[in-house]
C-alpha cells in the first residue's frame, strides 16, 4: 500500500518536474503534409508511406518467404492474423471474402501500420530546419499558435536559447521529416476512393446496369429513396476520408496538447488510447468496406 502511494507520488513529482524543466514554448501542428523537397510533390507523409511499404514487404518476406508446414515465429503470427481477418470477412460476406481479400487486407495493413507509425518517437519532432520567413504567409496561417499559459512564472527552458528546435538558427522552424500517412488527407482520400469505387466495380460486375436502377427509377416513393441512396453512396467518400484522418490527426493533436500541458506521465495513457484507436480505425475501415460490398452486391429485386 505504502509502495503504491510512493509510486503515485513519484509519478506526480515527475509530471510536475517535467512541466517546470521542459515546458513547450508553443504548439506547431499542421493540417497538411509538408513538402520535403521544395517544388516537388514528395511530402513527409509520402516518405513514411514508403517506410510503411518497406516494413510491410519485409514482414511479408520474413513471414512468408520460407513457409514451413509447422509454423513458428512471424509465420505463425501472420498466418493467425490472415486467418483471423479472413474469418472476419467471411462472417460479413462469405461470397466475396476470398475475392476481395487482397484489397481489403491491404487496406487494413497499410492503415494500421500508418496509424501506429505516427506514434513512434521522432515523428513530427525530427525535421529539417527552414527559415520561417520563406513561406511565412502560408505557414503562419495554418499553424495553431498557443503560448505557454504560465509564461511569466516559469524559468525559460534550457533549450529556448536561439530557437525552440535544437540545431536550428533563431527564428527558424522545422519541416517534420516524418508524418503519419493517416494524418494526410491524400492517403485517406485515396483509400476512400479505392474502397468506394471497388465496391461500385464489384456491384456493377455482379448486377450489371441494373445496379443503377437502385438510384434512378420512376416508381413513386422509391425514386426518392434512390436519390437518398445516391447521396449516402457519395457521402461515403468524405465519411471514410475524414473518419480516418480525423481520428489519427485528432490523436496527434491530443498527444501534442497533452505533452504541451504536462510533458511526462500524463500523456502515457493517451498513447495507449491512440494505439487502440489506430487498430480500431484500421479494423473499421476494412470491415466497413466489406460490409458495404456485402450490402451493395445484394440483388434488391430479389429481396423486395
Amino acid at each position: 500500500m505504502a509502495r503504491n502511494i510512493g509510486i503515485a507520488l513519484a509519478l506526480l513529482a515527475l509530471a510536475v518536474g517535467s512541466r517546470i524543466i521542459y515546458p513547450m514554448e508553443s504548439l506547431a501542428i499542421e493540417v497538411r503534409a509538408d513538402d520535403l523537397i521544395p517544388n516537388t510533390i514528395f511530402t513527409n507523409s509520402m516518405l513514411v508511406s514508403l517506410l510503411v511499404n518497406v516494413a510491410l514487404i519485409t514482414l511479408a518476406v520474413v513471414a512468408a518467404g520460407n513457409l514451413k508446414a509447422v509454423p513458428s515465429g512471424w509465420q505463425n503470427f501472420m498466418e493467425w492474423l490472415i486467418e483471423w481477418l479472413y474469418n472476419l470477412f467471411k462472417g460479413i460476406n462469405a461470397e466475396y471474402a476470398q475475392r476481395t481479400f487482397p484489397v481489403i487486407a491491404t487496406i487494413f495493413f497499410l492503415v494500421i501500420l500508418s496509424n501506429w507509425f505516427g506514434l513512434l518517437p521522432g515523428v513530427g519532432s525530427i525535421g529539417i530546419c527552414h527559415a520561417a520567413e520563406q513561406n511565412e504567409t502560408s505557414m503562419s496561417e495554418i499553424r495553431l499558435a498557443v503560448s505557454a499559459p504560465v509564461d511569466n512564472i516559469l524559468p525559460p527552458s534550457p533549450f529556448a536559447e536561439g530557437s525552440k528546435y535544437i540545431g536550428c538558427q533563431a527564428g527558424e522552424g522545422i519541416v517534420p521529416l516524418f508524418r503519419s500517412p493517416s494524418a494526410d488527407l491524400n492517403f485517406t482520400l485515396a483509400l476512400a476512393l479505392i474502397s468506394v469505387f471497388y465496391t461500385l466495380y464489384l456491384s456493377i460486375s455482379k448486377l450489371g446496369a441494373g445496379y443503377f436502377g437502385k438510384f434512378f427509377n420512376l416508381n413513386g416513393v422509391m425514386s426518392f429513396v434512390g436519390i437518398l441512396e445516391l447521396i449516402s453512396l457519395l457521402a461515403r467518400i468524405p465519411a471514410f476520408t475524414f473518419r480516418l484522418f480525423g481520428n489519427i490527426f485528432a490523436g496527434e493533436v491530443l498527444l501534442i496538447v497533452m505533452i504541451f500541458l504536462v510533458p511526462m506521465v500524463v500523456p502515457l495513457p493517451f498513447y495507449f488510447f491512440e494505439v487502440f484507436v489506430g487498430f480500431i480505425q484500421a479494423f473499421v475501415f476494412a470491415v466497413l468496406t466489406m460490409a458495404f460490398i456485402a450490402i451493395e452486391t445484394q440483388d434488391h429485386n430479389e429481396h423486395h
Partner: peptide, 12 residues
C-alpha cells in the same frame, strides 16, 4: 488548403 492535390492523391 487541407493539402489535397491531385498528383499526391494519384501517388497514394
Amino acid at each position: 488548403a487541407l493539402g489535397v492535390n491531385l498528383p499526391k492523391l494519384i501517388y497514394q
